[in-house]
Simulated assay, not measured.
Amino acid sequence: MVMTRWSPWPELRSMQERMERLLEMSRERSAGEPFEQGRWQPAADVYEDEREVVIKVDLPEVDQEDIDVRIEEGTLIVQGVRRLEQEERQSRYQRIEREHGPFKRVFALPASVDPDRTVARCDRGVLKIVLPKKPDVQPRQIEISLG
């Protein structure tokens, strides 16, 4: 029988890293975006220009049919599940750090976004959602008729 010396430090370091990630995620949440305990929270980038708002969400190894993107009452909801493959479940893991299971991200949308023209595409594990802005409404001159 082989004796292995146990040290608590690697486990404590791993726990500290996970706590730091949770604290960082809570600091990065925008107002109105719920933090759902026990759910995987994929990383996201949000940027905009004068024509559109773009949201990119990291979803490696998530099948397209396992992703649901919808707009409800001025919010964009991205949810789904990353599954642990059957053959991976049967392997004897030494460590599992990549999250799997259900996820949900909620983003408040500006009123300038046109939800009817939104498009989403997933490429190389990154979901890109493009939300075009409504065209600027130009003031219209109204003619006054006589009589």
Rank of each mutant, 00 (worst) to 15 (best):
L84Y: 04
T75L: 03
P10H: 03
G147A: 04
V137L: 12
P135A: 00
I144E: 06
T75M: 14
I142C: 01
V130K: 05
S145M: 14
M3S: 13
E52G: 00
E61W: 04
R89T: 01
H100S: 14
R121E: 09
E50R: 15
V54K: 10
E52R: 02
W9D: 03
V2M: 08
D45S: 14
S14W: 14
V81Q: 13
I144A: 08
D58C: 03
D68L: 15
S26W: 07
V62R: 05
V126T: 08
R13Y: 01
W40R: 06
A111F: 09
R95M: 14
R105Q: 05
K133M: 03
R121N: 11
Q79K: 10
E17S: 11
G147W: 07
R89N: 04
E88A: 14
P135K: 06
D45E: 14
F107L: 08
R140K: 09
H100I: 15
E20D: 10
V2D: 15
R21W: 11
M1K: 13
M1Y: 11
L22G: 13
D66V: 05
E73W: 02
D63M: 00
Q79F: 08
T75P: 01
V81F: 06
W9A: 11
S30T: 10
R27A: 07
R39H: 07
F107E: 03
K128D: 06
S14L: 10
W40M: 06
P102F: 05
S26Q: 11
S30A: 14
E88G: 02
R82I: 13
K104Y: 05
P34S: 04
I96P: 05
D114Q: 11
C122V: 04
V54C: 08
F35Y: 13
R105S: 05
L84I: 01
D123S: 04
P10N: 05
L23M: 13
Q37V: 14
D58N: 05
Q64W: 09
S112F: 00
F103W: 11
R82G: 04
Y47F: 07
Q79S: 12
A43H: 11
R29L: 15
C122H: 04
E85A: 15
A31P: 12
V78M: 04
W9I: 07
A31W: 14
P135H: 02
R21A: 13
A111T: 14
G147S: 06
P34D: 05
Q16S: 00
E11L: 12
R124W: 06
V57Y: 00
A108Q: 06
Y93H: 15
T118F: 08
K134C: 07
E88N: 05
R21G: 07
K56G: 01
R89A: 01
V69Y: 08
R27C: 03
R83E: 00
W6I: 09
V53D: 02
E20W: 07
P34Y: 09
